[in-house]
Design a protein around this nucleic acid. Structure first.
Lengths: 191, 191
DNA sequence: CGACACATGTAACACGTTACATGATTTG
DNA sequence: CAAATCATGTAACGTGTTACATGTGTCG
């Protein structure tokens, strides 16, 4: 969904062709989320099919297919901007799922998972800080995206620390991978 | 991807059938990310095709198709648990994209977007706090997921506030939707 | 000329959602 | 018995990625 509306927003600024849309999108978000060019074309064709964009007469130079917003497209875009993002819109959080399942999966040391992630996230945070130092002051969009990622990474580190202390005062680290699992449950052991 | 490994992790705990996998997954994550039952079956068939799970002889009751991890499946799962989530793994952040594009889209009041989102996120945060108050102390997985969402929502509010002040000391709120856009740029005006 | 960036598209596949079809078991 | 829940699956579609095919324009 984000791509669909990303393209519509860029077209609201000015009519554009596919290749241009990709570079503008990546410029606006500091190439944080590189946009696959194939997807731009398929998304554009769907937007065209649904009447949200139309081709300006290809009076332009050869090849380039320039698109422009239609009125329904403008309406849809305005709706997107005025409607907040809800929990249902957000994708599953892989990290949260991983840690949540780690605590109940036999043979997995949940605290090791948390610590490894913490190292990776802190490293990422340093990279973000470095990027921010070199960012142009007038590139507001990119600065906002950068800050967004920094805030998120910081909160992730805090959550990981919080999780570690919560795991520290817990019953028992799960038993060893292979041996000693049968004497408690005694389920039917195949082969 | 999270689903694939979610299923593998549950199967590491104990062999299960599809319907059971869905309920266990939702129980572990507090029904935060409801799991579509159709997807469970298609994912299971892919996992089976790729040799990561196998059917235990359907010695079980009629109907129920019970799956069990294979050794390659166990290996793949262990790799998932020991490899941190990187930036590339994460999906695009729709909110960040929305705000970033709002600042450069004519006719869109970026600060209104930020404020509307803030209201929605604070409301969500209250709901999460309410949920946490009623959560069982021993349900560690669900508590971790809840905390994860709380930490994230809090950081989102902080970022929105930060963005608002950044937007407040900015050149000019973009011009009105329709009129008065041509006298500055004088681009070719179609139709 | 040859390499590289620009530009458009298609095919194949993975993943995700919604909706439908089908039947067994449980329970009011 | 009727309705709800349990249980498995498929079809259609949207979205995203990777890879390929094809051609133009530019520059060393």
């Amino acid at each position: 969904m984000s791509i669909k509306y990303g393209l519509l927003a860029l077209l609201e600024r000015e009519p554009m062709y596919g290749y241009q849309l990709r570079s503008e999108f990546e410029r606006s978000t500091g190439a944080t989320w590189p946009l696959n060019i194939g997807q731009v074309y398929t998304t554009l064709s769907r937007l065209h099919r649904d009447g949200l964009v139309e081709e300006t007469g290809e009076s332009d130079e050869q090849g380039k297919v320039v698109y422009r917003l239609t009125d329904p497209g403008r309406t849809d875009l305005a709706r997107w901007f005025t409607t907040p993002v809800t929990q249902d819109d957000r994708p599953r959080d892989e990290l949260a799922i991983k840690v949540a399942l780690a605590v109940t999966t036999p043979g997995v040391d949940a605290r090791a998972v948390v610590q490894a992630q913490r190292t990776a996230t802190v490293r990422h945070l340093q990279e973000l800080t470095r990027l921010k130092a070199g960012a142009a002051e007038e590139d507001i969009a990119w600065l906002l995206v950068l800050d967004s990622m920094i805030f998120r990474a910081e909160s992730e580190v805090r959550w990981l620390d919080h999780s570690e202390t919560r795991l520290a005062r817990m019953p028992r680290p799960p038993v060893r991978p292979a041996a000693a699992a049968a004497e408690t449950t005694t389920q039917e052991v195949p082969r």
